[in-house]
Amino acid sequence: MNVAIIGASGYTGLELIKILINHPKFNISYIANSSGEMNVQDLHPSLKNVINMDVNLANAQDVAKVADLAFLALPHKTAMAFAKELLALGIKVVDLSADYRLSLENYEKHYCEHGDKENIKDAVYGLPEYFKEDIKKAKLIANPGCYPTASLLALLPFIDYIETENPIFIDAKSGVSGAGKNPSDTTHYCQINDNVHAYNPFKHRHMPEIQEKVKILKGKELAINFVPHLLPLTRGMLVSVYATLKDDIDVNEVLNNAYKDCEFIRLRDKPVDVKSVAGTNFCDLFVTKNGKALFVSSAIDNLLRGASSQAVVNANILCGYEEYEGIPKIAYVP
């Protein structure tokens, strides 16, 4: 199947190219960004002598001539405009932005007015472990954010066993690539090197995404306190979930039962770390308890499991291919 990558300039766009050039079923037929008029080797020097393709000025009509599916690695608001056009032209879409991850009400409350109210109601949330059957029948996949991916995979197995009257705390730490390619005061090397800081505590826009999906999957409204931090790492994400159990349970058994058939979730008997998942689609999980105090920790690569490799897994399911077709288990770079 011919596929397009729109938004190839950023980190997730590059990771999509790196995965798809080795994919046995998908063929990259179109690459685009907001400027065009260059070769992909000039856009990403790491692709020199690897792939030789022009980078186009993004245009939905051109995509429809050469591709059946499009990956959108675009900022929110920009993505919905392209998705709306592509869907009208019969192109399947895997969107890596936030534009279709939330209900219309929640999206407009936390982001901006939505420009594609018709399609947002039909978007399927692309967390494969929980929405696989819906993904198979979809035309539009809302690829989850990196923070919600790591948080939900850690939290969801325990929802039925925790005191939902008490607040749940999620302490999340991300590598600086999660902030995107454009530099800022907080992501400048001189500021982030040898430093760590929290940002938007209790106000981050991924908090309502986590709450909404818990309600959809488990039917419960939880008080979730989400605090993200920025780490001086290029890539990687470590999430720690703190909650209170109702009863004394075997927490490892709960986690094992939830993910025993999931190829890219690994259960660890020691606390997880980001280096072990860097460059892979794996989510590593660790759980322990102290009486009724529950601690669950997850580690993912924010650019891959939190974005691009998860997007390709979703595309595989959407197109009827083997779920993990073309998804490497061993990182090329440690």
Rank of each mutant, 00 (worst) to 15 (best):
A83G: 07
S9H: 08
A138G: 05
Y259S: 00
G115K: 02
N59A: 10
A88I: 07
D273T: 15
P208T: 11
E108Q: 14
H110Y: 12
H23N: 02
K270P: 04
K203G: 00
I216M: 10
A243Y: 06
K260F: 14
Y332E: 14
K48V: 03
A79V: 00
T164V: 12
K92E: 10
N302T: 10
H76W: 12
Y107C: 00
Y100D: 11
K218A: 04
N290M: 06
F226E: 08
I91Q: 11
Y189E: 02
I6V: 15
L96R: 08
Y30G: 00
V277M: 04
R101D: 08
V241K: 08
N290F: 09
L47G: 14
F202A: 10
V124P: 12
Y107V: 00
P45H: 10
L217R: 09
L16G: 04
H110V: 04
H197Y: 08
Q191K: 02
D247G: 06
L233Y: 14
K173H: 10
N195V: 01
V63G: 06
H188Q: 04
A331D: 09
V274I: 15
H44M: 04
E209S: 04
C262V: 15
S240P: 09
L43A: 07
L20R: 06
K173W: 05
V214Y: 07
Y147R: 00
P228K: 00
G126V: 01
D248W: 11
I51E: 13
A4T: 09
T149A: 01
Q211H: 05
N166F: 08
N22Y: 02
N119Q: 14
N106G: 07
E212Y: 09
V93P: 11
G115C: 03
P157N: 00
D269F: 09
A258K: 15
Q211R: 13
A98T: 09
P271N: 03
R235H: 11
E129N: 12
N119I: 02
L127N: 14
H229Q: 04
I170K: 13
V251N: 02
F82C: 10
N252G: 14
I120V: 06
H110M: 00
H206I: 06
I21R: 14
F158Q: 01
V94L: 05
L285H: 13
Y321R: 05
V50T: 15
S276K: 09
V214L: 04
K84A: 11
P128N: 13
S29A: 04
D185R: 05
E113C: 08
G279T: 12
L238V: 11
V312N: 05
A138E: 07
H197M: 03
A293I: 11
N49E: 09
V296D: 05
D116F: 09
E133P: 08
G291M: 04
D54E: 12
C319V: 06
I330P: 07
N200R: 12
A88K: 14
K92F: 03
D68C: 01
D194V: 06
I17V: 04
Q310W: 03
C190D: 15
D54N: 13
